[in-house]
Simulated assay, not measured.
Amino acid sequence: MTQILCPSQKYLRKSLFTSIDIALSLLLLMPTTVLADGKNNNSNDPPPQTTGTSGGSRGCETQSETSLSSIPALILLAPSQIYGQTLASRPTFAWFINNSASLQMEFRLYEYDPASKQSKLIKEIKDKNFKSSPGIIMLSLSNSELLVGGRYLWQVELVCDANRPSGNPVATAAMKVVLVKPDLEKQLSQSNDVLAKANLYNQADLWYNTLEIALTSKDEPKLRELNMFLLEQVANGSETGQKEQIQVELTKSPIHQLQR
């Protein structure tokens, strides 16, 4: 049965997913994040209010440790308040986990209709092997093809306590799949250089395409600067007062690649 959601003023909670009509709870925690070239794209086409960071900073406490860091437990590597754009029908999603424990994660992808302001759940991952690792997690969806022109919301949740879903760190971001412009398509086809392609994506405000290259090639000296700049944009979007600390943590984080 299709699940339909509408924006409201509280976070999504797992317990709400048992009904057809659900309030899509997206609390605004971060100011607008610009893309890597400094442009604030899609200003006339805003998505629902999204939160790129989880609420609070303590995350999931364990018996052996209590997080004293003011860094949010969960940070999505995505713009806030605007649609991060991609050319990929099977894009890669990335987020940062600030917790050393291996925790159950849940991923949800919604197709959003700006006209009706409703969202339909089209993908959910919550299997027992889908667990967190400290650092940056990159997720590729091999069996989910997004539509050009489609608008989507994606959400990550850390399951601290399955019996108390209201206490789980959760964050949501928006994505739009766009059609490649002829000039860009020609330039990309003529370039075999990874750095050149990353710069072309960046100049075209294609956040997700740029970030994927920057993260997977961050050990390449020429791409390290671009990678650090993108992560700086994510850190600057935080309202925790720990922007520099967040940037340092993001920059030095190991990267874990997952596929579902």
Rank of each mutant, 00 (worst) to 15 (best):
L188G: 00
S69M: 06
P47K: 05
K126R: 12
E220Q: 08
T33H: 04
T216M: 06
L226V: 06
K243E: 14
T18D: 10
L188D: 03
L147C: 12
L250M: 02
S238G: 03
L250N: 07
N42D: 11
T92Y: 01
A235M: 04
T62R: 00
M1T: 15
G237N: 06
S80V: 08
K126N: 14
L35Q: 09
S166L: 13
T53E: 15
L206C: 07
N199F: 06
A198R: 03
Q203S: 04
P91Q: 05
Q187P: 05
K126A: 11
R58E: 15
S8G: 09
K222W: 00
L74D: 00
P48M: 08
K10P: 07
T32E: 13
S133V: 13
K117E: 15
S19G: 07
N209M: 02
L68W: 10
N192K: 12
T92S: 09
G237L: 03
K128W: 11
Y83D: 02
S100Y: 13
N163L: 14
R151V: 00
L68N: 10
T66C: 10
A115E: 15
T62P: 11
I125V: 11
P134G: 05
S253Y: 06
S253P: 13
S116F: 14
L77D: 05
P79Q: 14
L27K: 09
L68Q: 13
P254A: 12
L28S: 10
E220S: 01
M138R: 06
L26E: 04
Y208I: 14
N227F: 09
N40P: 03
T50D: 11
N143Y: 07
K181R: 15
L24E: 02
Q9R: 10
L5I: 09
S144P: 11
A101C: 12
I246D: 06
E244H: 14
Q118Y: 05
